[in-house]
């Protein structure tokens, strides 16, 4: 899957939740959204890309959300 597109999608999700006042909950919500709505190969493709290319393109909240993330 196109990693650039996946990063943009993840950041778009982050852009919605980062406005929430409870940062801890918002970070969890980003991870939950990706788990619930991204097909496993999308999740895996993103994690594989980040492990080899780094996560510089991610919003902070997305980076934090994916830190404890285990792709299917």
């Amino acid at each position: 899957m196109n990693a650039e597109h996946l990063i943009k999608m993840a950041n778009d999700i982050g852009a919605f939740f980062e406005a929430m006042p409870n940062r801890e909950q918002a970070t969890k919500d980003v991870a939950t959204h990706i788990r619930k709505f991204w097909e496993p190969r999308m999740q895996k493709s993103l994690m594989v890309y980040l492990s080899t290319h780094g996560d510089a393109g991610l919003k902070d909240i997305v980076r934090d959300a994916l830190r404890e993330f285990h792709p299917a």
């Binding site: 899957m1 597109h5 991204w38 999308m42």
Partner: peptide, 12 residues
């Protein structure tokens, strides 16, 4: 697990 949405199908 969820499946692919249409735009994701094209990407895949």
């Amino acid at each position: 697990e969820p499946g692919l949405r249409i735009p994701n199908m094209f990407e895949a």
